[in-house]
Structure formats: C-alpha cells, structure tokens
Design a protein around this nucleic acid. Structure first.
Lengths: 209, 209
DNA sequence: AAATTAATATACTGAATCGAACAATATACG
DNA sequence: CGTATATTGTTCGATTCAGTATATTAATTT
C-alpha cells in the first residue's frame, strides 16, 4: 500500500489528490462527462493536464473515480439505513438526506450518478457497468433492510421484498431527476412522505377487489 | 402556416424534415446532446450542416425539437392511459409499453428525456425547463387518471392522489434508468407488476401501527 | 554531494469542433 | 425567358479538444 506520510521519494505533491478528485467530481456533477473539458478540470483541480493524467488517467478514468467517490458516500447512507431502528423512520431519514444532497448549493444538481452517467452509458460501457453496479448496490441494501423489517414483523405479510426494494429505489431515482429539473425541496419532502406511506401500507385500507 | 404541397417557391427539399428529425433524435438518444457532434448528425440526417442550421437552428435547438418529438409520443401514451377503462390495467399497459420502447433494438436505450436531458440541464436552462415541463405533463396525466379512478371508487380512500401520481412517475423514471443500465425486460416487467400492485394497495392488508 | 525518483510546468500536435461565408442548383413567379 | 426564392453543396476559419513530449523542480537515498 502507498505510504501516506512523508517517506516518499521524489518531488512532493502540491495538491491533495482527494481534494482534486472532489473538485473534478463537482464539475462532472454539473456538466456531465462529455460536457466537461480537461481544461475546465485542470483549473478546477488546480493541476495541469499532465499531472491529472499521471494521477488519475484519462478523462473517462477520472470520471469513473468520481463516480466511485459518490458511490462511497452513498454506501455510508445505505449503511445508516440498514442500522436504523424503525423501517419507516429510517427510510424517511435516508430520503431526506438524499434531498439535502441533491438540492444543496445555489443550484440544485440532483444525483451525480443518475443524472450524468446514463447520458454516456451507451457510448462508455464501463460507465454503464458502474451505473448497473450502483443500482444493484442500492437494491441490495434496501432488500436487506426490508428483510430485517420482515423478521421484526414490521412489514405487510405477503409483500414482495424485492418489489418493495425496487419501488423504494424508484423513489430515489425520481428525487434525483426531479431535483435536477428544479423542483423545490418542500415538494420533494412531501413526495417522500406520501410515497413511503404508500409503499409501507400506511395509507388507509383498501376497499375494492 | 407553411404549405405542405408543392406550391413552394425555391429549390425543393431533398430530405423529409420529419425523417431527419427522427434520425437526429435517434443519435441524441444514444449519445446525449454534448456527446453528439454536428458531423455525426449531418451524416445520420442525410443533410449537411448549413441545411441543418436552416431547417432546425443550432445544435441545442435541434436537440430541443427532438425532445419535443419524444414528448408528443409520450403524450399519446398518456392519452391512452387516461382513456383506459380500468386503472390497474391501464397502468400496466402504459408501463409495459414504456418498457418496450426503452429496450427496443439491439441495445436498450432507456428514455431519451430522462437519460440525456438531465446531464445538460444545468448548463442549458431551456433544456432544464423542457425537462421540468415533461415531468409536469406526466404528473398531470397520472393525476387526472387517478382522480377519475377516485370518482369511480376504484381507489383507496384517504390516499393522496398527488402522492400516488408522483410515485407512479417514479416507477417510470426507474424504468428509464434501469433499462439504460442494461436490466432485462423480464425484470422490469416483474418490477412493474409488483410496484403497481403495491401502489394500488393490491398487496395484502397491513398489520402494524 | 551525486544519483534517483516523483511530481510539476511549458509547449506542442493533430484532430475534431461549431458556425458561417460563398457558390451552385432547382423550382415558382411575372 | 429572366428574376426571385429556397434549398443544397463546398470550403474556410477560428477555436477547442484530448493527449503527449520535453524540460524543470524538489524531494529522498546513498
């Protein structure tokens, strides 16, 4: 493994790779992969192109590392969800935090993964695989949490855990897109409240066949 | 209005504007706005750049016309949904047709709007407005259909029609993204079945508080 | 201090980009 | 038949793009 302290041989880095990656991710988040030039990245990251190549590879590789960065944050949120004591409260907290991330800053940017990766998924197969992997991750995390809720008999009997998990991810997808389109956080929070209630059967009992 | 018959003055068009727009839309659908060059478009549309400019304006204008083309198709599907006799059957038909469109061809392309517009929504405010408008259209159509279902007492009492409408659109968003990521049509159809059942309260009654 | 290593900085290449200027062509109108 | 009009085809220019070759700087190691 790379040593992080100063026992490295050559000229020391002037810029923190982590911070540079975050800066790059911010640009990709706003403009997408094909909408971001290496010159833009160069100034945002505070390093010139050769240094970027050395540290991260070409533009696609850098973008995929940015995706992975996002994925790790997501994983932390999902882990919190899995540890949450009550299902409904855990879901509300998870979604509301997502909203906070999506509408943060003066201009809401939505989800970096769901709003920028699909555009290049067909021309960049590795990105498509990244996207598919992230969707699988989310499905799996929801599913685990749901199955736990089932064991704690917090769930409707006879419900399809997999179907519920996918429907919950659909809520997340919609938050990602809607926030990017400019919808207000208030609207999104209300949507989350009602959608979660609907999915968990908190809505009143059914009448019809 | 422009006359469509041959009483036009100058040199006649050699290529059908509608067909050219469809060709352009196909390219944008696969590669997004910033991932598609005017040269690509030129060959796909069978017209050289000056003719494209004359007929459609610049690249962004052409992309927005392609978006509008998609929007009209969508409108037709939504109109069919609104006319559908039963809510659940109508929804299933609507979503399954969406799946057919999203996974058509040798490589599934998802939804042109939801998979390509978000990537440029922040850098192209008009596109963002188009996206927001389409989302509003879909919400409104679902809502109308749901309210009709309410009058025909096909709905759970006490449910939020608006919340249900947005949750149904969330299903559509998810289909758009999941198909783009490469998920199988089988998986998507099963998801639709289970999600619609969940949203309409077809899943068994609830137990817990 | 000399050699080695790793990072930065400058400059360059060749291709692709958008958009426009200009010329050619084909129809309708007078 | 000549003129006006609308579309097409060719070419150009200025810019931007991604990626690399070369040189320089700053540290560690011996």
């Amino acid at each position: 493994m790379a040593q992080k302290t100063s026992s490295r041989r050559g000229r020391p880095r002037t810029h923190d790779p982590e911070a540079a990656l975050v800066a790059a991710a911010g640009l990709f988040w706003s403009r997408g992969l094909t909408g971001t030039s290496l010159d833009d990245l160069s100034v945002a990251m505070g390093m010139n192109r050769p240094s970027i190549y050395l540290a991260f590879g070409d533009k696609e590789a850098l973008y995929r590392k940015a995706l992975d960065h996002f994925r790790q944050h997501l994983g932390a949120g999902l882990a919190r969800l899995e540890r949450s004591p009550g299902l409904e409260a855990g879901l509300l907290a998870f979604f509301n935090q997502a909203i906070r991330i999506y509408v943060d800053g003066e201009q809401a940017k939505g989800c970096m993964v769901m709003c920028t990766a699909p555009a290049v998924a067909l021309t960049h197969p590795e990105v498509r695989e990244d996207l598919a992997g992230i969707i699988r991750d989310i499905d799996a995390a929801f599913l685990r949490r749901i199955e736990r809720a089932g064991q704690e008999s917090e769930l409707l009997p006879g419900i399809s855990p997999k179907g519920l998990a996918m429907t919950l991810q659909a809520i997340l997808h919609s938050l990602a897109l809607r926030s990017r389109s400019g919808e207000q956080a208030r609207t999104l929070r209300r949507f989350v409240r009602e959608a979660v209630a609907l999915c968990l059967g908190r809505a009143p009992l059914r009448l019809n066949p």
